[in-house]
Design a protein around this nucleic acid. Structure first.
Lengths: 190, 190
DNA sequence: GTCTATACCAGGATAGAC
DNA sequence: GTCTATCCTGGTATAGAC
């Protein structure tokens, strides 16, 4: 059972990931869910409040998905590859990019709490990746920078994939940019 | 001597790089340049036309800056580091990110020509980086993926830097995210 | 919790004078 | 090439009935 609030968040998240924070409006959600704009305001009084709810849920869900990678994958290398798969799957869903990547770009339009949550999301990811790198035998002085580099390459790969996939559905030869970039990084860093 | 059109482009480019394509309006440029909105429309009839002019100029200027890196830096490794410096300098100018990174995120709001030009910009960069990597002795089968990974890490590093720099000017310990990420990649890829 | 109706302002753009 | 005046549309949000 999904509540109306959840359905609004689902719609809004997709819209943000595809069009950016300033690229959608309550009217778009209204059309998609066949609900009126005031009804949306009932659940999320302002667009800023909606953004707060979005990032809070995104962080939780991402942590859960990452936990599944932890449980399913055996070995540090496989966990790093599985983690990159989370980003690749995001893009596979209609060319979405990371919600926090979008929020980083549109930070000026967002309230402080959302900016801080965005930064905290990336800090979470750096911490997790650094831990896996340490397990894989990367020296302690290198885990921090290497984790940041891995994270940056994944976020950037989503941008490149988006730019490349634009002339309609013609994906071209470069099938999976995100997984390709991730594989290069894993090979280079370990 | 700078023409009015140039001053408009300067203002618009900064606005796009800081707020995103959907995060600014002709009114912002108007306020900054003390010129009226219709005057801006005289030079760039539509916002889409402005975006086209922006990316055309950006590609030219970026090619020039890259050429300077080619001329000034001795050796493939130094050229890769110098190239990353272009991105780091962009961020140093008021937290700007790459214009094409923004256009990749906001692609849905942009006309097809701009999307194609964005993709072409990235293709340019991949080509140049791949060439330098080949010079550095990277095997031919690896230059393509490695160049894409380097480019992705630079674009992503700008997003991370933006997200991190948000709680006002408190930069924190992690001084230069872009150069740090670039150094990690260069060490790992060469 | 959802609706109708509406207020208010901002964004993109045009007409036409100077 | 720049201005004043204006138009239309859409975005965000509120009031108040059901």
């Amino acid at each position: 059972m999904t509540t109306t609030a959840d359905r609004i968040l689902d719609s809004a998240q997709t819209l943000v990931q595809v069009r950016g924070y300033n690229g959608f409006s309550y009217a778009d959600i209204s059309a998609e869910l066949s609900i009126t704009k005031p009804s949306i305001h009932h659940h999320f009084p302002t667009k800023a409040a909606l953004a707060e709810a979005l990032i809070a849920r995104y962080r939780e869900r991402f942590a859960v998905a990452r936990k599944e990678v932890d449980d399913d994958a055996a070995g540090a290398r496989q966990r790093l590859v599985g983690y990159a798969g989370l980003y690749a799957e995001t893009f596979a869903q209609g060319g979405r990019i990371c919600l926090c990547g979008v929020f980083a770009v549109d930070a000026e339009s967002l309230p402080v709490q959302v900016r801080q949550a965005t930064d905290a999301f990336f800090a979470d990811q750096r911490h997790w990746v650094a831990g896996v790198l340490a397990e894989a035998g990367v020296p302690a002085t290198r885990t921090g920078p290497a984790a940041e580099a891995y994270l940056a390459s994944l976020e950037g790969a989503l941008l490149l994939a988006r730019a490349h996939g634009q002339p309609d559905g013609a994906a071209g030869p470069d099938r999976d940019v995100v997984r390709s970039v991730a594989a290069t990084l894993v090979d280079a860093l370990l």
